[in-house]
Design a protein around this nucleic acid. Sequence first.
RNA 1: GGCGACGUGGCCAAGUGGUUAAGGCAGGGGUCUGCAAAACCCCGAUCGCCGGUUCGAAUCCGGCCGUCGCCUCCA
Length: 465
Amino acid sequence: MTLHVYNTLTKRLEPFKPLDPPWVKMYVCGPTVYDKAHIGHAMSAVVFDVVRRYLEYRGYRVVHVMNFTDVDDKIIRRANELGIPPLDLAQRYIQEWFEHVHALNLLPAHYYPRVSLVIPQIIHMVQVLIKKGYAYVVDGDVYYRVRKFRGYGKLSGRNVDELRAGARVEVDERKEDPLDFALWKAAKPGEPSWESPWGPGRPGWHIECSAMNYYFLGEQIDIHGGGTDLIFPHHENEIAQSEAFTGKIPFARYWLHNGMLQLRGEKMSKSLGNLVTIDEFLQEHEADVFRLIVLSSHYRKPLGYDEGVVADAEKALQRLRGGLRPPMGRAEEGDEAAALEAQVRDVREKFLAAMDDDFNTAGALGHVFTLVRAINTARDAGVGGRPFAWAQATLLELAHTLGLELKEEAAAADVVPFIEHLIEIRSELRKQKQWALADRIRDRLNALGVALEDTPQGTVWRWKV
RNA sequence: GGCGACGUGGCCAAGUGGUUAAGGCAGGGGUCUGCAAAACCCCGAUCGCCGGUUCGAAUCCGGCCGUCGCCUCCA
């Protein structure tokens, strides 16, 4: 079985063959850092984190680059409102992003380029594009000559004539063609700017990704990722720039796009004002809960978000963790142990098949739950020892491949002795069959968020979600 | 208006030509338990609608209805 991925460029499932195995060059579009990141950004980050984890699990060595757009209209506007330098504002949110990387258990990218730090490379790329006839200068602006690039529209499935007909953008008369887009914008008063051969100015939005790709990963890359909302025009323009610049086709072999996170049936976005920030989510829930939400549907489909899916994920997480509870017996042989081992093998095989099929995490997760049930059944049957440990190790291994930690929330250490003391007293009461009192302690603790369970091995407790 | 995606049990969600349509959540009934909890077992869908292709379709084709995305900054 080989890994197949859906390629937006060809609109089909293709066997995954990197240019230079085992290396995989992966570039993922990161956020424009002008405000707090929301869970839509987090979804994209988690999706490509899982892609990376699975590739690495399959033996590939991934070089992972994610950019920060720190020079942009919205950043400048926001910074002016706040009366601080634009790059300071950007830096604040970049810092927050790194905190999110940690909190969401994302594998850090190997490089985090930002526009403001690759200006010379961008200028060089624009110069080459001008020299090759793919760009032209107008009053200190530089535009990309879209019609010059054969194949424009191949990613988004549009053709230049349709685009022109549907163009609703205000036409800038200075451009040769309404479709042409800015590679370099002449400085306006009050804006950050850099010196260039065309006068002071700043880069257009699309050129940064082409430049970063080229300077950090080379002429061609294996995987380019981002949200579906970036397909047009951003990624289309990126292809035009990079392929015109290097002359190498294709710029990216596999284009992967994640669907949009939706709140109340609409895309979560700043402009619609229907967003939940990553901080807000993490204040209420664990990172695994969010990841479970993302994993539970296919990454290319829109992901509906509401209190219901969050509550489901909370419970589902508890179930997964339940599979990690210790064995009650120690039988290593017999039908039950053999059945468990067979299940482990079966689940692993199906898990891989699902993930190999364009990262079908929802299907893969279903198999993980099947493993959980197999483990629970075996535990009830008294299986322990090596077969049981192996099953649980497999459960953790597969969960970790998806980026799920499955760690129990650490209890505040200072309350533990009190809880354990109460449990001791209650156990004494139970021995004396003082049920009413014993139940009162249990109910009281339950109300405080501590769940008690009486097992043959004694009473165990855990925090309720 | 153009391009594209999706519509599976109460909710979420896999499955894209052929065994009994995964799995999670919720619900009902059991086992276990002093009672619970957890766990385990059992119960529930013919796959938006209509038509077509086929020995056979949720799965392919066409039409319709509905939802969403892109076409403008956006993960």
